[in-house]
Design a protein around this nucleic acid. Structure first.
Length: 576
RNA sequence: GCGUUUGUAGCUCAGCUGGAUAGAGCGUUCCCCUCCUAAGGGAAAGGCCCCCGGUUCGAAUCCGGGCAAGCGCACCA
């Protein structure tokens, strides 16, 4: 599997990821023990089955629990505990970070790390600094497309959740080694733009020629349309009342759309989201990609005409009926444009992986989009959709739809005004995307330990406070070269250090599962573990060695909290 | 009706590539500052892991069948 250089690189990579290093080491120890036992004729040579190494949930079960003997009992024809016994007799822990292995329960082998393991972790975090947590696990060109809010109006709660999830997911993938493009798809073409225009036109006529045009039934009723029409009127006056319709249409759509898009960009910037690419749907029409796509589908033989429309013959056996690609009126459907858009992602831009964050209300769209891509010869497994369930806002324990302040449906920016960017970004990533999430508005503004985001930030501020105190006292802290004299004897110290060691692995797991909520949970656990440590272990104490040890543990904790918060793009306040 | 997500402590949720006594937070009851931010920590109480079957040494976890809730099933996006 790979040459020397790769192995060397992998070892360097492992250095930044203590858990992976430990796994690697345990794997090697077991393989060596098996080889030794085979040579002694204790067991027959066998191809063993896969086994897992778990981080011990309970301290008394060791630091790493290995189920090798359980999964391989049958393979070697021995009871699990007997097999474990043979392995243990042949295991050599000299020069490792492990001090003992025990057999427990039905046949687990529990590995216990030594004190030097704790020092190793502290050293790793210190030397990695703001890069601690970053690995080269993945190496793909990945696009994360998220929000993609309709530019005909302001962003809503679904966009708020999708924004937080998508942005953090993109960051997690980046930390795990991928090259990531964040993309926003602007639906600036098709049917809803027609509706947008009709609504604008009606509002424009209301200004200069009331009651001449009826407001369209399927129009956009929001006040924002009136504001846009007024703005247009301010600039052009009544020039276009019964004027050049074509010119009017082009101008009013263009200026209104631009205004909306600018507003969206500004709001998202405030929400700390920066997109690499703003992709305009209209480009697909202009560049002929939509036509190419339709032709491709025709060539693949999966289209037919009926009732004046062009249909896509679905390959999804669950679908009740086929889908329209081009309406009888000649306007392509959203579905057609979406196929062309995804064709562009893969065939034109060659992404290895495309991840879309979609609301649950779009769920039914997945199978047919993937089916259509397959029809075009694109490997649809390269497309993953993160489906997030819809959000409910809760205030006073009851669901609310309208903002108390504006009396209208709550937009992204209303939410950020009523709570904070930090709280929103944290809260939307507290639960996995497939859970039905209730956003507690009262809790999000709470400045107490009940509010998890404050709880985490407070841990960070507390560390900064300790450092300020040490500095004020003029206490001497040795440099890291004294690390071999560090001694962590308190259980709360060891627990915290071991938790810090799992950070890079936590990111890898989050990336694999597309689950940013693991990171907020991790942040919370680190804060909790630190507060425990704080209560039992005084940092600025008399004993020099203890003080140094604890100082560097605080520094490591500070680094991990900082990295976690910066990954989530949540502020890390030094004073609260 | 079909598809899909969810169902775990009073409430909000972890755990779900099968493993050792099912975990957190909030709420409830009690305890802890002569000492770095008590904006913190500790302890107790609290569970037919929705129900019924199956797979196996072993199921909250996997499979099948139910039940309940959210979402979707347009020539809307």
């Amino acid at each position: 599997m790979g040459n020397k250089i790769e192995i060397k690189e992998e070892k360097m990579n492992n250095m930044k990821n203590p858990i992976k290093l430990a796994y690697h080491s345990i794997n090697e120890l077991i393989n060596n023990a098996i080889t030794a036992a085979t040579q002694q004729g204790l067991i027959k040579k066998c191809e063993h089955k896969e086994f897992t190494i778990e981080i011990g949930k309970d301290a008394k079960n060791g630091d790493f629990a290995v189920n090798f003997a359980l999964t391989n009992a049958k393979v070697y024809g021995l009871p699990p505990r007997a097999l474990a016994e043979i392995i243990l007799q042949n295991i050599d822990l000299t020069d490792t970070y492990f001090e003992k292995v025990e057999i427990a329960g039905p046949g687990f082998m529990n590995f216990y790390t030594s004190k030097s393991w704790l020092n190793f972790i502290i050293n790793t975090i210190y030397t990695s600094g703001e890069n601690y947590g970053k690995t080269e696990t993945n190496n793909r060109r990945v696009m994360v497309e998220f929000i993609s809010a309709n530019p005909t109006g302001p962003m809503h709660m679904g966009n708020a959740r999708g924004g937080a999830i998508g942005d953090c997911l993109a960051e997690i993938l980046k930390w795990s080694g991928d090259t990531v493009t964040r993309e926003f798809y602007i639906n600036d073409a098709g049917n809803q733009i027609e509706r947008f225009y009709k609504s604008l036109k009606a509002r424009y006529y209301e200004i200069y020629a009331p009651n001449t045009i009826e407001f369209p039934e399927d129009g956009y009723h929001g006040d924002d349309i009136m504001v846009l029409a007024q703005k247009f009127a301010d600039k052009y006056g009544d020039k276009y009342i019964n004027g050049d319709e074509e010119e009017f249409k082009k101008l009013i759509i263009e200026s209104s759309l631009n205004d909306n898009i600018e507003k969206i960009q500004k709001d998202l910037e405030y929400y700390r989201i920066t997109f690499d690419v703003w992709f305009y749907e209209s480009m697909l029409y202009e560049d002929g990609e939509l036509d190419d796509t339709i032709n491709g589908l025709k060539a693949a033989g999966c289209t037919y005409e009926k009732d004046g429309a062009l249909w896509y013959r679905t390959t999804d056996e669950n679908a009740e009926k086929d889908e329209v690609l081009i309406r009888a009126n000649g306007i392509p459907t959203y579905f057609a444009a979406d196929i062309a858009y995804h064709r562009n992602k893969f065939l034109k831009r060659n992404f290895d992986k495309v991840i879309n964050v979609w609301g649950a209300d779009h769920h039914g769209h997945i199978a047919r989009l993937k089916g259509a891509l397959s029809s075009l010869g694109i490997d649809s497994d390269k497309l993953d959709i993160v489906v997030m369930q819809l959000v409910r806002l809760i205030s006073d324990g009851k669901p609310i739809k309208m903002s108390k302040r504006t009396g209208k449906a709550i937009s992204l920016i209303d939410l950020l005004d009523e709570t904070s960017v930090d709280a929103a970004r944290y809260f939307f990533n507290m639960r996995s995307s497939d859970s039905h999430f209730d956003f507690d508005l009262d809790l999000a503004v709470e400045k107490s330990s009940e509010n998890p985001v404050y709880y985490v930030q407070y841990a960070y501020a507390r560390i900064c406070s300790i450092f300020r105190m040490i500095e004020e006292d003029g206490v001497n802290i040795s440099d890291l070269s004294a690390i071999n004299s560090f001694n962590y004897n308190e259980p709360d110290e060891a627990a915290l250090i071991k938790l810090l060691s799992t950070f890079p692995d936590e990111i890898i797991k989050s990336a694999k599962a597309y689950d940013p909520s693991r990171i907020t949970r991790y942040a919370y656990n680190v804060a909790n573990s630190f507060h425990k440590f704080y209560n039992t272990c005084k940092v600025n104490c008399e004993d020099e060695s203890t003080r140094n040890s604890r100082y560097y543990l605080c520094l490591a904790t500070k680094t991990v909290l900082f990295n976690t918060l910066s990954l989530l793009k949540i502020s890390a306040p030094e004073i609260m």
